[in-house]
Design a protein around this nucleic acid. Structure first.
Lengths: 145, 145
DNA sequence: ATACATGCAAAACATTTGCATAAGA
DNA sequence: TCTTATGCAAATGTTTTGCATGTAT
């Protein structure tokens, strides 16, 4: 697991390299996304950022998310309820395990995803570029309630 | 593969059994969902239904979708673009293969989904109830362009 | 007859956009 | 300085809701 600081530097240097500007808001938004391993929503990150930068607007957070999507440094998770959540630590496709009771999100180890992708690619003739894999269930803690 | 007529009767008898009313609009909406194997959006089904029932409102289609979700007879696919699409033929979780160019949706055969679910269940302690698995790529026809 | 479904319009919700102002390079 | 980012408000697009009217049972 990469350290939050390393991950932040990684993204910052990519932004510099592509001549995007490093603003206090962007740094704060990035930190909020990276520090939070709960796959936060835009709303949650905005709330976090406003603690230190009270004037930060929701629009700026959305614009930053789109910028991060463009440079491939954030993964967007679309949910049935229409509220997207994000993974800025691992911006590449990977499985998620979601508790439908407490909304906790885990990254389970799944051995066979790559194999499965190859299988589908060969059977269908599609060139597969990405995927989305979510498991919905009840976590151990919520099962006990 | 179940015949469209059989699938329609299946849903209608479930509605009757639960004492929901069978209206011409509901039948038309169901037929549009079942006839269409392209995983249509609400908008698309509404357009189809309006050919025979021009006064049908979008709200009624949405309400019917929610009714079908309640009784477990439709599968909702959430997309990053925020436009949901539906599968009323196979209302249980199954993989989808989506062309990012022409939006075609296929149901690929994937052997190892059940095995993978069991693997995640055992490693995590979660009780898994459903999943969502989408592959995004370019279909053979679009690759040639 | 009566409860439920429909259809319209308005509301709700997340997200995007336009534009004047502020600020990084 | 000069271009890009911010923040506000308004716009967008999808889905939901309230309510009067219509209709299946």
């Amino acid at each position: 697991m990469k350290s939050p600081q390393k991950r932040l530097d990684e993204i910052l240097s990519k932004l510099r390299q592509r001549e995007f500007r490093i603003t206090p808001q962007r740094i704060a938004i990035l930190k909020a996304f990276i520090r939070n391993d709960e796959h936060p929503s835009v709303e949650q990150v905005h709330a976090q950022v406003k603690i230190n930068f009270p004037t930060t607007s929701l629009a700026t957070v959305y614009k930053t998310v789109n910028l991060l999507k463009e440079i491939g440094e954030i993964l967007e998770l679309s949910f049935p309820d229409g509220r997207n959540r994000y993974d800025c630590r691992k911006p590449y496709p990977h499985p998620h395990l979601i508790c439908i009771n407490c909304q906790a999100i885990l990254d389970p180890e799944v051995g066979s995803v790559a194999r499965m992708t190859t299988e589908v690619e060969q059977n269908s003739g599609y060139r597969i570029l990405s995927h989305q894999l979510e498991f919905f269930g009840v976590c151990p803690a919520c099962q006990r309630k």
